[in-house]
Design a protein around this nucleic acid. Structure first.
Lengths: 112, 112
DNA sequence: CCGATATTTCTATAACTATCGAATTATAGA
DNA sequence: TCTATAATTCGATAGTTATAGAAATATCGG
């Protein structure tokens, strides 16, 4: 992962409504949440929500799929892990440290 | 950790020079790096670097200490871990997942 | 105290970002 | 096709952030 895409991801998350939406999506898992439901839960007008979701999608943090009239957003865990890995890379001056940052939905988990 | 301080931390990191500076500090460990050395390594004018370091400090991501004429900045690992924990909280819809995000310098490590 | 070094604060300007109503596009059911 | 629902794009405005030179502050050695 390179600096530029990490910056886009961090910028995307650095906003009240987007951070809140993203966390709901992270917690929702693979099923995702439709745009309208996010707008309602966060009490943000649909056009604003759409703007924010577009930023998250553009940053690669979420994916979208149409399902009938709804557009369902879900968190992309790989992107999140990439960002966290970038931040902790070679941390602590070479001292070994427990920086295993990993969060995967069931389907992407390596069978142990 | 609450939303507001996480947003400040993410905003602080969502900028080319600050992200680069922060990573150098993360890698430098507890010894830290003086402001001038960061400005030089990143090829940023001192006044701009100072502005950016102030943002990182304000977000709680770095600490500063004076040492003779220099001001030495170091990464605050606890803050970084707080941010990552906030992002991954309750991830993956309740499915247990390896989201142990932790990065500590030697001195803050719990003796196992 | 003086000159040199290290860094910050001030100031102005340019560029970017958020907001949200209105208009538009896409889908579904009768 | 008509109507309702779901979401996005457009457009104007307000607010925030980055930039970097010049001036100010702090520290050190002699």
């Amino acid at each position: 992962m390179e600096a530029d895409s990490v910056i886009r991801a961090l910028s995307a998350l650095a906003q009240e409504h987007r951070l809140a939406a993203y966390r709901l999506l992270v917690q929702a898992g693979e099923g995702g949440i439709p745009a309208g439901a996010l707008a309602e839960q966060l009490d943000v007008p649909p056009s604003s929500m759409s703007f924010h979701l577009a930023q998250l999608a553009n940053a690669g943090l979420v994916t979208q799929r149409r399902e009938s009239r709804s557009i369902i957003y879900s968190a992309d865990y790989a992107a999140m892990n990439g960002v966290m890995g970038y931040l902790t890379e070679n941390c602590c001056g070479g001292v070994p440290c427990g920086d295993s940052t990993a969060c995967l939905p069931d389907s992407q988990r390596k069978s142990a």
